[in-house]
Structures are given as C-alpha cells and as structure tokens.
Nucleic acid binder design. Structure first.
Lengths: 216, 216, 216, 216
DNA sequence: TATGAATGAGAATTCATTCAT
DNA sequence: TATGAATGAATTCTCATTCAT
C-alpha cells in the first residue's frame, strides 16, 4: 500500500539519479499539462528537464511509463491527503465535507495536476486508462466506505454506497473540469459551499444549520 | 427534426454528394469508435466509406473537422431527444427523471458512441475540447433551466441552478464512464433507479413514493 | 508568324467561349504571378476566373499548357511593341534606345507580366523553359539583326551581334529583376538614362551628346 | 578558407555528425541538380546520402532549409574565389576580366551547379528567392566597389557603379543561362573574349590592345 | 459547354525509440 | 549514467486530372 512511487528498477538509485528522476517527472507534468499527452514529445520533456532524450529513457522505459509514473505520484498525493483529512475529522457527518475540501483545495492550487487527472489521462491509451480507473475507484472506495459506515451508524438512510460515491466524485469532477476548461467559476473555492450542500443532500445528510467554517 | 445533419459548407451539395457525405460520416463514426481518434487514420475512414482519401478531404477539410462534424451531429441527436423528452413530460417533478432516462438509454444502446464522446474526445485537441465543452454546457443549461423553473414553481428549495445542473451532469457522466471503462454495472439500466433517487435528492425533489415505471 | 495566340482546338470558338478563354488567361496571369507556377493551383485559377475547374480544363488541356498560352500571349505583346518601335524609329542609332524604352516601359507598367517572364517561367518545367528560351531568342534576334545592320552601315565597330544582343538583354533583364524583387530603384524609369548609356557603350555606339527626350 | 561550410545550428556537432552533415549536403546537391528543386524528394536525398529520412531532418529542419544551406555553401565558394581573384590581380584595369574569368570557369566546370542556382532556384519559393537575390546583390556589390575605385583612380569615366555592376552581372548571367539552356555556345569559354570586350566597353575601360592571355 | 465531385499517387514531416560513444 | 545522433514507420494533406451529369 505504501509502494506508490514506482522505481523503474529494483536497484537503489544514487541520490543524484533520484533527484534527476524527480526533475524529469516535474518537467513531464508541465509538458503533458501544456500540450496534452499525445502532442507532448519526449524531446520537450527532455528539454524541460534540462537533460537529454537518452536521459529520460534511462529513467523511464517509455512515454507511457513516464505518464503512468506521474499519475501514480499525483494519485498518491491526493489519496494521502484525503485519507489524512478523513482521519483527522472525528465527526462522521463532517467527513464528506472534509474530503471535498481537500480535493477542491488541491485542484485549485495545482491546476496542472487537475488537468492531467481529469482531462488528459482518460484518452491517453488503454494502459493509462486502466491505471486512472483504478485510482478513481480507489478514491471512490474511500468515500464509499465512509458512506457505508455513516449508514451503519444510522446517520444517513439506505443507499448504494458505491454508486453514491461515484456520483459524488462525478459531480466534483464536472465542476472542477468546467472550472479548468472554461474558467468558471473564476475561483474554484466559490463553488465549494453550494457544492457541499448539494453533495450532503445527495448522500442524505441533513444541511448543516450552523456552518462555522465556511471557508474552503 | 430539422437541424440534425449539419452542413459545414454553405454550398448546396448534389444529392449524390450529400449521400456520400453521410456515408463518410457513418464510416468515420465506425472507425473512430473502433480505433480512437488518434489511432484512426484518414485512410481507414476513406476505405470504410468506400471512397478515396481525396473524397474525404473534399467533404471535410481535415481529420479534426471530420471529428467535429461527427460530434455535432451526435450532440444534436442527444440534445434533441432530451429536449423532446422534457417537453413530453408534463409533470415538472418528472422532468429530471425523463432526461436521465433518455441519456442513459441512448448511451446504453450506443456504447461505442458514448466511449467516443465521453472518453476519446477529451484528448483530441483543443478545438475539439472546446466544442465538447460547449456541448456539455448546452446540456447542463437544459437541466439548469428546468431546475430554475422548478424553483420558481416552489417545487424545490433555493439552489444555484447552474451548479446543481453541472453536478447532476457530472454524476451521470461519471456513472456512465465507469460503466464504459470498467463494465460495472454490467447493464447501465441497473443503475438508473438508484441514480435517479440520488439526483432527486441532490436537487431537493422529494422521493417518488410510488414509482410505477421503475424500468429504464 | 501571326499565329501567336494559340487556339486549343482548330474549331472556331463562340464569342462567349473566346471571352471566357481570355478571362481564364487573365486570371491565370494574376494567380501565377502571385503564387508562382508551382504553388499556383488550378483551383485558384478557376476561382479567379469565376469559373469551375472543369471549365478551365475545357479551354486548356492542363496547367502547363495554360502557362504556355499565357507566355505566348505576353510574348506576342512584347515582340509586337518592340518591332513596331524599331520600325517607327528611322534613325539607326536610336533603335537600341527605342527598344530599351519599350521594354522598360512595358515591364514597369506590367509588373506581374515581368515577374512571369523573368522569374517564374525559368523554373516551371522543361517544356516551358523551352518555350521561354525561344521567346528570349526571338527577342535577342530582333536586337541582333539591328546590330548587324548598324555594323554594316558602319555605325558601330566589329562585334558578335548575337552575343552582344544576349548581353544587352541580360543587362536589362537583371536591372528589371532587381527592381522586381528588391524594389530598387523604386521607379524603373529612373534607371533608364544611365542604362541606355551603358548599353550604347556596350554595343559601341557613341554617347548621345544632346539627349532631347530623356524621358522614358 | 575560413567560413565555407556554414553551420546553421549553433551547437557543436560531433565529428561523425559533421561528416554526415557534409555527406547530406553533397547528396542533396547531386539530387537537386539531377531532379530540380521541386521534383527532388527528401527520400531521394536520404537515400543518396546513405542515411535515413530522419537523419536528414535531424540536420536540416526541412527541404527548404536544406536547399538554402546548399545555396549558401556554393555562393560562399563563388564569392570567395572571385574575391581572391580580385585581390590577386594587381592591375586595376584587369580586375573585371579576372572576375569574369573566375565566374565563367567555375560555371563551365560545374554545369549542374550553375543550372541549379541560376535556373532552378528561382522557382523554389520566396525564402529561397530572397536568399538568391541577396547573393546576386553581394556579387554585384563586389563588382561595384571595384568600379567605384577604378573611377576614383580615373581609370574610367563617370558612371553609376551599382547600375553598371548590375548590368555586367546581368550580361554574364544571360550568356551563361543561354549556354545552360540552349547549349550555345557549346563551350562557354568561347564566349569569354568577346564578352570581356563588351563588358570593358560597358564600363568604359579601353580595349586591351595586346591581349597576351586570351584563353579563358 | 460547364460543373461539382471524385480520384489517387505522392509529398513532407513527425517522433518514439534505439544505440554508439 | 548520460548524450547526441540516427532510424524509419506512419500520417496527414495536396492537387493535377478525370468524369458523370
């Protein structure tokens, strides 16, 4: 469960190499975001990473693997933060809000990462699709398990946790995508309170009457 | 019934040519769904349309334009059917259900088409992304206007119709995408009743106590 | 000698057709001048002539033939005017000046025609090269014969009339070409008096001490 | 001897690559002369250079750039030789003859090259035309500066050095072109003595009474 | 005569990947 | 480890020409 940042070889990398590997990933994120998976070229990645094409190929066996590594790295970040937020929120009824906050905050501050996840990855080829889907499912499962628990606790009425989680994820996904691609709302945080209310209703949680921390 | 087959050129085509143009679009749909936007080649399209490469280029100035034409044609179909369903449903409270039914039914029966437009299209270049986004927004606007009316009629409580419509669309979109990519649920129709309930709650409609036609 | 404007068929053309044929030639001149022989397309010619591609092909068997016809038409004009000027100039010593005047005046007022002749035609394929060369030789022969006569009359010293005529033509050619392509001198006429002096010297004519008509 | 093989890229090439770059240029010269600019294909160049198409594109960004590089390389050779000949001829009155000799000799011994740059290049597109024109002007400027000095030295009478140089260049150009295209005179050297006489007269130099080395 | 439509042989160019230093 | 050079299959698009109405 911990092995999220994949190493290309099982050998231990020198610190220098590890550093370069990270630099390449950073560069790849920038390039894939700017140009899209298909349009991005390994040349561009190499140049952005201030290395050579051969150098990129030393660290990653190919373009697809590079994208995949990027995806994993980013997914780990998102999942970790979400999990942490869920753990830190004792109130069962507030967990959904907490997760939403984490996601919106992360995407709002890493627009490029959002683009990569929500837009590019879907159509970058079967292998990547597979990986992306797994990540999405892992994320939805996180929500689903909280929903299941909430239901057991009698906090919410009967529902299909999987489907509800998927629907929640989709609602967030679309709001973020519209923000990404059409720039509306200008600030993603604006949409947070209303979206929170909608999602609470969707899963059957009562509206929070007193919203003490309306900030995102 | 009117504006379904869009004519990108303002010139009047001879009947023969009009026929061939449609044949090319049909062939293109088949090829794009089978191979994906990027993998599909104009050669394949030409062959599938039983015409020459030049013939395709006579009717469409390029690959992107061809895809766009296809996108518009299909989007028009989806939007038109949805609009029709909304008009045919007198009960304001049932309109959302009706729209959902149309979309799920259409996608369920045209899985390839759904895959093409929900998944492939995202990575087909900025112009197509732009067009796709516009279509999504048009669709969300359809829902939003119904929500706005429902609110005026006092059927639902106060909400941001735009955001709620976007969230609804996203929820549907994600359920369909999961079905497309992971094959679960096996039958999209299975998810319909529960999804309907979730969306009704999301927008603030009361659950239908007596659901006489629970089938999709 | 009179058959300069070639008719594609030996049949007599209707006035309408003759008119359209001219319109196509005019359009072709414009297009070839603007785009160059290779870059120009038959579509462009057809559009410029406000007719269809098929229409162009009715009047001319192909692109090369079209260019050739244009070349012949223009050459006829140039040669006719030059010949006329030579005949109208009784003074043997003034004939060279007269020819120079005609050429510079014609090119200055038909820049596109000059471009066609001096720049495009050379590299438009063997058949056209052949034709162009014949025209150039015809023109040089005109000068050469005058030089030969001048020599017989003792007006100028011994020289190779062919070579001298070629050199004269080349000198003019280059001056016009530089004007065409680099725009210097701004007005071709500016160069006329000095060029006249140079050419007179080249062939061995004495400088005209009193230049009564220095205007081009 | 210095700036002969121009490096379009500022990067330092490995010796192997430098070698191959030259090989590609040589191959390109052969192909372009044999087939003409437009008819020549990059495939042919690659094959003639015993490399791959990609290899050619690694060194030159495109067909036009390849031709341009070739043009510059050859022009540098011509200009360098001419300049050298001018420097080596102490007698101011003999400089024009020396330049003429160099040019005629070079073209006579490299007919294909002459054809390529005097005839083909004209129709190779605006960028190449521009470059070609610049070269012509550089060459004419060489002559012009000599003419200006000769005039200062009182060797020749008043004239416009620019125009005279252009005219000289044009005369030579035309004689060479006629030789190239019509094959007359059979040997370009035949025309040298008479052409020399004509040009001397054109610029106002006295005929050399005793021509000790009338051979080209 | 004229037209719009169709053809199809080719072209230039791209780029993921490999490899010799 | 890293690099620059090289590869070559694959792809989009062009356009002179032909042809059915």
């Amino acid at each position: 469960m911990a092995q999220l940042t994949n190493q290309p070889t099982s050998q231990v990398l020198q610190p220098r190499a590890r550093e370069r590997r990270e630099r390449i990933l950073d560069a790849a994120l920038a390039v894939f975001t700017r140009r899209g998976y298909r349009e991005a070229t390994m040349d561009e990645v190499a140049e952005a990473a201030a290395t050579s094409k051969g150098g990129v190929y030393f660290h990653f066996p190919g373009k697809e693997a590079l994208f995949l590594a990027l995806l994993e790295r980013s997914a780990a970040l998102l999942l970790q933060r979400t999990q942490l937020a869920l753990e830190r929120t004792p109130d069962p009824a507030g967990k959904l809000d907490a997760a939403l906050d984490v996601v919106l905050r992360l995407f709002a501050s890493h627009r490029d990462l959002a683009r990569l996840f929500l837009v590019e990855a879907l159509a970058a080829g079967p292998a990547i699709q597979e990986a992306l889907l797994a990540i999405r499912r892992r994320f939805a499962a996180l929500i689903a398990s909280e929903l299941a628990r909430a239901r057991e606790d009698g906090l919410i009425g009967p529902l299909d946790p999987q489907l509800a989680a998927t629907a929640c994820f989709g609602a967030i996904y679309e709001v973020v995508t519209q923000w990404l691609l059409s720039g509306s709302p200008a600030d993603l945080a604006e949409a947070a309170p209303e979206l929170r209310r909608l999602l609470r209703r969707l899963v059957g949680l009562p509206d929070r009457s007193l919203d003490e921390d309306g900030t995102l």
